[in-house]
Computed example of a mutant assay.
Amino acid sequence: MPPVPQQHGQAGPSVWQKMKMGAVMGGGVGLTIGFIFGSWSIIRGGAGPRGFMATLSQYMLSSAATFSFFLAIGSVIRSDALIPPHLQAAQMQLLSHSPLVSSKAQGLRLMKARWEAEHKCRSSTQA
C-alpha cells in the first residue's frame, strides 16, 4: 500500500501525540505478546495458586506496560530531529554524492602533494 501523500500546509503530529501513539501501539503489542507467553506458561506449568485469569492478566499487563514505555520513548527519540526525516535523507544523499576526489589522477596528485609537504616539514625539523 503506498504511503499517504502529505500536504505542505499542515504540520505533523506533535511530540506528545507521537509519544501517545507509541504508547498505544506498544500496549497493543505488549498485550498480544503477554497473552501468547502467558498462555504458554500456564499450559506448560499450570495456573498456580492465583488461578488462570489472574496469572494471564499479570503476564499481559506487565508486558503491555514494558512495551508501551519503550515504544513511547522510542517514538519521541525518533522524532527529535530538527528537520523532517525525508529532508534528512535527501541531505545525506546529496552529501554522499559530492566526492572529495573526482578522479584517480587527481587523487594521486593530491597524495603526492601531501607527501612532499610532509617530507619538507620533516626535513626542516631535522635540520
Results as ranks from 00 to 15, higher is better:
75 S>P: 00
85 P>Y: 10
34 G>H: 00
17 Q>S: 08
55 T>W: 04
20 K>T: 03
13 P>F: 11
98 S>I: 10
1 M>R: 11
77 I>W: 01
66 T>N: 12
90 A>P: 10
69 F>S: 05
82 L>V: 12
89 A>S: 15
109 R>D: 09
118 E>H: 12
125 T>G: 12
39 S>L: 09
32 T>L: 12
27 G>H: 05
94 L>G: 09
103 S>Q: 02
64 A>L: 03
13 P>M: 10
20 K>S: 04
122 R>I: 07
30 G>R: 01
102 S>F: 14
23 A>S: 06
92 M>Q: 06
95 L>R: 08
17 Q>R: 09
68 S>F: 01
87 L>A: 11
45 G>N: 14
47 A>D: 02
64 A>Y: 02
8 H>R: 10
115 W>I: 05
13 P>R: 12
42 I>Q: 04
58 Q>C: 10
2 P>I: 03
110 L>S: 07
35 F>I: 00
50 R>Q: 11
1 M>W: 13
34 G>A: 00
105 A>P: 04
123 S>T: 10
45 G>F: 11
101 V>L: 04
16 W>V: 04
1 M>G: 14
85 P>G: 07
68 S>G: 01
70 F>V: 02
105 A>L: 09
51 G>A: 01
112 K>C: 12
94 L>V: 13
119 H>M: 15
108 L>V: 13
109 R>V: 13
55 T>N: 06
125 T>P: 06
123 S>G: 02
31 L>V: 09
42 I>G: 04
97 H>L: 15
66 T>G: 08
52 F>Y: 12
38 G>W: 05
25 M>F: 10
92 M>Y: 07
104 K>L: 14
60 M>N: 00
34 G>S: 00
110 L>F: 13
58 Q>F: 11
6 Q>M: 09
111 M>S: 14
78 R>M: 09
123 S>L: 08
98 S>L: 14
92 M>V: 04
66 T>C: 11
76 V>M: 08
90 A>S: 12
121 C>G: 07
41 S>P: 00
58 Q>V: 06
99 P>I: 04
85 P>E: 12
64 A>D: 01
77 I>M: 03
67 F>T: 10
107 G>F: 09
102 S>N: 11
117 A>L: 15
11 A>E: 15
52 F>Q: 02
23 A>R: 02
72 A>L: 03
126 Q>Y: 07
7 Q>C: 06
97 H>M: 14
125 T>N: 14
116 E>I: 15
115 W>L: 06
77 I>Y: 01
6 Q>D: 07
119 H>T: 06
81 A>F: 14
94 L>Q: 07
54 A>E: 14
120 K>C: 05
1 M>D: 12
75 S>W: 01
95 L>S: 13
89 A>W: 11
106 Q>P: 00
2 P>K: 05
58 Q>H: 07
41 S>W: 01
77 I>V: 03
16 W>K: 03
37 F>S: 04
62 S>K: 03
1 M>N: 08
50 R>N: 13
3 P>R: 05
74 G>W: 01
10 Q>V: 10
57 S>M: 07
